[in-house]
Simulated assay, not measured.
Amino acid sequence: MTRTAGELLEATTVRLAPDPGANPLLPLIASGTAGRGVLAALALEQRLVIAADLRSFRHLAGRSAVEEPTCAPFFEMLAEGEAVAAGRLGAFAEACGADGERTAAYEPLPGCQAYPSYVARLALGAAPADVVLALSANFASWGGYCATISRALRDHYGFTDEARAFFDFCAESAPELEERARAAVQAGLDTGRISEKRARTYGRLLQSYEAMFWTTPARP
């Protein structure tokens, strides 16, 4: 029996769920033992990720409008979300001491920038429906990470609501985005344009690159 989009999304998310130890930075922040310098690096790396992903999602939205129109609303909403996130990240960076001079002198960490580089690669040539499935599975753990970080920033670091707004925004549930993902995946299934195998490969690599993002700043 052919699976529905909802069933495929759920199965793929479960299959690609990250190992509990894949994010060594999270427990350090959650316990308040991560230094301010580590938080500053997180802010500066995330700023670069957002800028890159925003361009990738806009490109995917444009490609989808021509190749797979049902996927376009998903990527459009992702791009809109990245723009909002970018606006809220500044207060976090400022609270971490990542001022203009530090930002200008900062050298990005390769392990943190592998993820957006791969998203850009997918944006250039992957089938949009496959990317929807892969990204949806990858996003499943992101909100939980951000909720944990926001609580820790309040309880252990004394950050204001404004300084935590980026993480609060990313921790919010997104039922409309989930609905757009289901519509895109269902259209891909109906037209035979989606490949579970390809999407799982994309998702597995995305999870690996995200693990690198969190592991790199946690290194001594």
Rank of each mutant, 00 (worst) to 15 (best):
T13P: 01
Y118W: 09
P27S: 09
R154I: 09
E68I: 10
H156F: 10
L124P: 00
S117G: 15
L25H: 08
P18T: 08
G144W: 04
S136M: 08
T201R: 15
A152Y: 05
S31W: 00
V119F: 01
L25P: 06
D19L: 13
L78M: 15
P108V: 09
N138Y: 11
A30E: 12
G100S: 08
L16M: 05
P18D: 06
G32C: 02
P20C: 10
E67F: 09
L26S: 08
R164L: 01
G143Y: 04
T12M: 08
A105I: 05
P220V: 12
E172A: 15
A114P: 03
R198P: 01
A127F: 03
D19V: 09
T12Q: 04
T103C: 10
E196K: 13
F92C: 05
E68K: 13
L133V: 01
P27D: 07
S208T: 14
I50D: 11
D99P: 07
E101I: 12
L177D: 02
A140K: 10
V185W: 02
A105W: 03
R47W: 11
L26W: 10
Y115F: 15
L42M: 14
G81I: 00
D161G: 12
P20G: 09
G32W: 04
S117V: 12
R154C: 10
E82S: 05
A147V: 06
F75Y: 07
T148Y: 03
F166T: 00
T4P: 07
E67N: 06
Y115H: 13
R3W: 14
H156L: 07
Y209A: 02
G37P: 02
A187E: 06
Y106H: 13
V84S: 01
V66D: 09
S195L: 05
L28N: 04
I149G: 00
F57Q: 00
C170N: 14
G81E: 00
E45W: 09
Y115Q: 08
F75A: 01
G100Q: 12
P73Q: 03
Q113M: 14
A95P: 08
R219G: 15
R164Y: 00
E67A: 15
F159Q: 04
F166Q: 00
L89W: 01
T2Q: 15
T33R: 13
L9H: 03
A211P: 05
T148F: 03
E176C: 07
A34V: 04
E196H: 12
A134E: 01
C71F: 06
G158W: 06
E179V: 08
K197G: 12
G188W: 02
G111V: 08
R121K: 13
A93E: 10
V14W: 14
A137F: 05
H156D: 07
T33P: 01
R36P: 06
V84T: 08
F213S: 07
A140F: 08
R55C: 11
A61W: 04
G143V: 06
Y145S: 12
E210R: 15
